[in-house]
Nucleic acid binder design. Structure first.
Lengths: 143, 143
DNA sequence: TTATAAATGAGAATGATACTCAATTATAAA
DNA sequence: TTTATAATTGAGTATCATTCTCATTTATAA
């Protein structure tokens, strides 16, 4: 998806929800698009601030919520108390391997595991809604 | 393992580490044994307090750390900002399914997934150390 | 029994995130 | 284009789980 399309989609969503299109909201979206990495709210806040747009931490959090709520971004919980955000646009589902030493994050997909999760949920009469699957260890460089 | 054996093992560990055997520490161990559920620090604190032993939140946290460090307990991160603790004694590795509605937690084990995780780690040249695998959805009663 | 290092607990500190509310701003209507 | 107004913003405060501090208490080795 082109960035123009994305931006216009975002504006449409905002309008549809009766929300206003503000420079701060656009800036957060742009940051999420620009660096597809697994970014902390603070990073995004600093990045926007160090550019041009005046923004507050509160607004960054609020906008990230909007993005997550509307399928533009995913929120990750890596267990260290700081949420990470990554674009969800053109980015199929995946899970993560995290290096315990340097913090490097690699994405992985495994369809068999996905299927098994469904089966496990079924066995326990659960209707599966989401899952968290994270592998932690030492990356090649840190071993 | 009998509770007597467990208690004596715990005392041995404390001694080996140059730590003292205190009523507070014993009480936390007893709570972890008593209710094998997935308990919050606050629950354990309240349970000990409502009995007989004088204890503080700080000491509960400190003791839970000791228990985790020495293989008596596991610390779980369910993504809601409160850690859960469960006994690790006579309790083989497992992962969890959590109901998004009522919070019910069910344990599951799947050897194939365990194996695949190893493979995935290998593919990415990681030395696997731990993992988090949690399924979230609606339990039978909450659907 | 004593000496002493470790443990405890009350309360303060921390850190990420959420909330409050007065001032600002986007936007629909005139 | 101007205006009216409801939504948004941001500075600072609040929250909440957890950790830290440090003076007091306690377990334990001698």
């Amino acid at each position: 998806m082109t960035n123009e399309k994305l931006l216009s989609d975002f504006k449409d969503v905002l309008k549809k929800e009766g929300l206003k299109v503000t420079p701060q909201r656009i800036a957060v979206l742009e940051e999420i698009i620009k660096d597809k990495g697994h970014r902390e709210s603070e990073d995004i806040y600093m990045a926007i601030k160090s550019r041009k747009t005046h923004v507050s931490r509160a607004t960054v959090y609020r906008t990230l919520d909007i993005l997550v709520q509307n399928g533009f971004a995913r929120k990750l919980n890596l267990g260290d108390g700081r949420a990470r955000y990554e674009t969800k646009i053109d980015s199929p589902h995946h899970d993560h391997i995290i290096c315990n030493e340097c913090g490097k994050i690699i994405e992985f997909v495994n369809d068999e595991i996905e299927k098994m999760q469904e089966e496990i949920a079924k066995q326990h009469h659960f209707k599966l809604q989401q899952h968290i699957h994270q592998l932690f260890g030492l990356c090649k460089e840190c071993q």
